[in-house]
Amino acid sequence: MPPEESTGQGAITVAHLAPELTRGLYRDMRTARDLDTEAIALQRQGVFPAYVSVRGQEAAQVASATALDPARDFVFPTYREMAVALAYGVEMVGYMATHRALWHGGLYDVMGSRFGAINAVVGGPVPHAVGWAVGERLRGDQGVAMAYFGDGASSEGDVHEAMNFAGVFTAPVVFFCQNNQWALSVPNERQVAGGSIAARAEGYGMPGVLVDGNDAGAVYAATAEAVQRARTGGGPTVIEALTYRVEPHSTSDDPGRYRDEAAADRWRRRDPIDLLRTAMLQAGHADEAFFATVDAEAARRAEQIRDGVADAPEPDGSELFTHVFRETTEELTRQHRTWQEEVEL
């Protein structure tokens, strides 16, 4: 199915957004793209054991994160939200170091950045987000939880239970589904009954919004409205951002075994960064000089993060045994002692 048929849209417009906002969106999307390219290279060089690309999903990630308030809100990511982390202001060397498997969940400050540790459990961040949101409501504070998940995760029981719980308790949470149309090797039509994830929201007593995930302006507007609704007591929202996973599921995947690459090529031609750039020029939000400057800055920043990640020192091996249990067990103590004896040999 061609992307314009899938989303109902071809070109995009940003006339409804402030020029400074669109310039910030472009800057973060361009930087995320360059950093993604550097990360794939690090995996190929053996620095990262594995990596999951965000290419083609920058609009969905950056625009949704930009609609949040990092001083009040809290993000609960999966393993594919690198562009969200960047736009949200997370310290990126510490975040990307997660892919080197250096420490539990990354070297960045989870609580300080209000950005949860990378969660590789399918659907795992969603109940966590609802729990935090209910707690925020009970405290009388105005923070909003953002739960990211994919179309494959939408089939998990945890996601349905979390949405129902959020609806019953009017939790201030936004359920943001990046529907990139492939649950690893399983296409939407084989695992999403009814064809729409946003349509399920009605059953949980909340609004559901289907948005063009490659249109940064549309994603920002939909997310800002959902965040405002949650912050003012209106409860949760489901946003389904329809996009496409143009790269393999991960660096160990071969999508040629299960999908028609012609479809991926059609989506590559509808690149979210190119769409935003064209729309900004048409709206008078920027000129070619701006893009030349930002593109160069983005490349430099991506290289700096790459070098910082590659040079990050490994933590002391004894930290393997921290944060496993609140109170250590006899077996963990034995393993720690054995490790110490082997290291000291």
Rank of each mutant, 00 (worst) to 15 (best):
A133W: 01
E344S: 14
W182R: 00
V75A: 02
G131R: 10
D271P: 00
M92A: 04
S155R: 07
D158F: 00
A166K: 02
A283H: 10
R137T: 12
Y148V: 00
T78L: 03
R268M: 08
V144S: 12
A199M: 07
V173E: 10
A59K: 02
E240Q: 06
D73W: 02
G233Y: 04
S250P: 03
D260Q: 11
V219I: 07
N164Y: 00
L184I: 15
V168R: 11
A65N: 08
D151R: 05
Q61E: 13
W339M: 10
L345N: 14
G105D: 12
Y258C: 15
A289Y: 00
G308D: 05
A83T: 08
G94P: 04
R269L: 06
A153R: 03
L210E: 13
R114G: 03
V121N: 11
Q335G: 01
L210W: 02
E20S: 14
P187V: 11
S252K: 12
E342R: 12
E189I: 06
A224T: 00
S252C: 05
G167P: 08
A221M: 09
R277L: 06
V47C: 05
Q228G: 15
F48C: 04
A312S: 06
V130N: 04
D260W: 04
G89S: 09
D287K: 09
A263M: 09
S185T: 14
E341K: 13
T170S: 15
P315M: 12
A162M: 05
D109Y: 02
F175C: 07
L86F: 01
R259H: 13
V84I: 11
G8C: 10
R300A: 13
V134D: 02
T278G: 04
F176G: 10
G131W: 06
R55N: 07
H128S: 05
D274R: 13
R55I: 02
T322I: 05
R337W: 02
Q282M: 09
L21H: 09
L68C: 11
D316Q: 11
L138P: 00
A59N: 01
D215C: 08
G195D: 07
A221V: 06
Q57C: 03
T170P: 02
I239T: 07
A18N: 11
G233H: 08
A120K: 03
L281A: 10
G112E: 13
P207D: 15
W339L: 12
R229W: 03
D287T: 06
E4M: 08
A241S: 09
M1Y: 12
V121S: 14
F115R: 06
T223V: 06
E297K: 05
D265R: 09
A39E: 04
M29T: 10
S252E: 08
I239W: 00
